[in-house]
């Protein structure tokens, strides 16, 4: 199969498994890793509360201000994140079960997001069918696909299915 060769041919995948990431069950994660989640939560909660203060109040007083509910949810985020932070401080705290990050993973996501962004821009200049073929080919290439089956046949088939379904069958203006 062509794709098998392609997958195994890409360097980042054949690299030896780097199993030293923080989530590895063998070594307990550092305090910084354990606190990262709760601290992000606190930051989001504070941001929500701050944003709630920018909501303009109506001239007539109701039973409830429109700020009340957003403030409540922001406070809930802060409160529970704080509690989660306290619980995460002891080193024997239970860990989250996560797969470890592989080398090349971040690059794959960034490149895929780039391809999607380019698609959004190009769509306004080119026909839906052309840009979609390009996007599909791009996503396949970014994630390790090679060969004419992956870069030509597959994009054309996917685009044809999408176009038939949306443009012809559902009459959505794409």
């Amino acid at each position: 199969m062509t794709y098998d060769a392609a997958v195994h041919g890409t360097p980042h995948i054949t690299a030896p498994a780097a199993e030293t990431t923080a989530e590895n069950p063998a070594t307990p994660p550092s305090l910084a890793v354990r606190l990262a989640g709760p601290l992000c939560g606190i930051a989001v909660g504070i941001a929500v509360i701050a944003l709630a203060q920018t909501i303009t109040l109506p001239s007539i007083d109701g039973q409830f201000s429109p700020r009340w509910w957003p403030q409540l949810s922001g406070a809930a985020i802060v409160l529970f994140s704080l509690a989660a932070a306290v619980r995460a401080i002891p080193s024997h705290a239970p860990m989250d079960e996560l797969d470890s990050i592989q080398p090349g993973g971040v690059r794959r996501i960034a490149a895929s997001l780039g391809a999607i962004a380019a698609y959004g821009v190009l769509w306004h200049w080119l026909d839906f069918r052309i840009v979609t073929v390009l996007l599909v080919a791009g996503l396949v290439a970014v994630n390790g696909g090679r060969g004419w089956a992956g870069l030509v046949a597959f994009p054309v088939v996917v685009t044809a299915v999408l176009w038939l379904l949306f443009s012809v069958l559902l009459r959505v203006p794409v």
């Binding site: 909660g45 909501i55 109701g62 429109p66 957003p70 922001g74 809930a76 409160l79 529970f80």
Partner: peptide
């Protein structure tokens, strides 16, 4: 905490009673 985040997200848009813009 995640549920709180969901509640905060649900407030995006016009206020259901007085109609002022929120977030």
């Amino acid at each position: 905490a995640a549920a709180g985040f969901g509640l905060a997200l649900s407030t995006v848009g016009r206020d259901p009673i007085v109609g002022t813009e929120r977030m």
